[in-house]
């Protein structure tokens, strides 16, 4: 049980920045950013490649910078060139596949054999005992989350939030939506890449297919968190991302450990959860309408 909890915390924190990135792009900016999958691998690829050449610390900001670039390309496509936002992400994602291979020197995966990682170096300090991985991942994630929440309270942050909330108002109030969407997507993708960077060094490997479906899993985490905490404020949203991620990884670990179903089955379950959660308002309306129709029919005496 303790082992399950530990795994859930480690993976939960490691992957929590993806739902947090989606909180920024999907919830706040109201853009479905499909760059996420490729961007996650980009972060991992940059991070592991740099750690392999002896720079595990520098690897983290480098991966984030790579994420910013990926976000910028997506934002440029949709704000300047008029590519529909979902397509812009998919196009960038496609291109990133080659970029990621390039980063990993044209091989499908890179491994760290005996190289130092941020985790191995942190273990040597002895802080946190055997929980050191969860502690370090948790620290980085919470720090990023706190910075994000603080940022969203600044003038620029408010402008970004308004862009997703009412773009008419933004245009009429001296804010350039092109700029705010670009900044927002750069930040969200830097968070995704940061998650990739941590996961890569944690697993000592980066794989070209490691990001497949990660955007749906991230959304599932965000939705789980929001179901638990509600979705009213920015702070709650950021906390929901972390909590949802840990709960998701907890379920994942239990499935993995108890083998109540094949682990690969979890993807289908995740897809169903996300589809149902997003469809929920529509289903609720439909049910209410059917109920009214039934009631009206009975009243009619038939």
């Amino acid at each position: 049980m303790l082992y399950i909890l530990q795994t859930a915390l480690e993976l939960g924190f490691l992957y929590a920045l993806i739902p947090m990135a989606l909180f920024l792009s999907f919830r706040i900016l109201n853009i479905a950013d499909m760059t996420t999958d490729g961007c996650f691998v980009l972060g991992a690829a940059v991070s592991v490649t740099m750690a392999a050449s002896g720079h595990p610390f520098l690897a983290v900001p480098a991966a984030m910078f790579a994420g910013i670039c990926a976000g910028f390309v997506t934002a440029f496509l949709q704000t300047r060139l008029g590519v529909p936002s979902i397509l812009a992400g998919i196009v960038t994602n496609m291109g990133l596949y080659t970029i990621n291979l390039m980063v990993m020197d044209w091989s499908a995966n890179v491994s760290l054999l005996k190289d130092d990682t941020i985790f191995s170096l942190f273990r040597e300090t002895g802080i946190g005992g055997q929980w050191y991985e969860a502690l370090l991942a948790g620290f980085i994630t919470v720090l990023a989350g706190v910075l994000l929440v603080l940022f969203l309270g600044t003038r620029l942050g408010l402008s970004i939030r308004a862009t997703g909330d009412n773009i008419d108002m933004v245009r009429a109030s001296s804010i350039n939506p092109t700029f705010t969407i670009t900044v927002g997507l750069c930040i969200s993708n830097s968070l995704t890449a940061l998650s990739g960077a941590m996961v890569g060094q944690y697993q000592n490997t980066a794989d070209i297919n490691g990001g497949t479906g990660i955007v749906v899993i991230g959304l599932a985490c965000l939705i789980i968190g929001e179901t638990v905490l509600g979705r009213r404020s920015v702070l709650k949203g950021a906390v929901a991302a972390v909590v949802g991620s840990i709960i998701y990884r907890f379920i994942y670990a239990i499935v993995l450990y108890t083998k109540i179903m094949p682990v690969q089955g979890l993807r289908l379950a995740t897809a169903v959860i996300v589809a149902l959660a997003i469809a929920f308002p529509t289903i609720k309306n439909w049910a209410a309408f059917q109920k009214r129709k039934m009631a009206a029919r009975q009243k009619g005496g038939r």
């Binding site: 940022f151 600044t154 003038r155 408010l158 308004a162 909330d165």
Partner: peptide, 28 residues
């Protein structure tokens, strides 16, 4: 059309107040 519904009254006013500062101090 003129206000952001998901943000507070205070935050909406702060956005309108941005006009006076011309993009300076984006992190204030």
């Amino acid at each position: 059309k003129g206000t952001a519904p998901g943000m507070t009254i205070e935050e909406n006013l702060a956005l309108a107040y941005l006009r006076s500062t011309k993009g300076s101090a984006p992190f204030a």
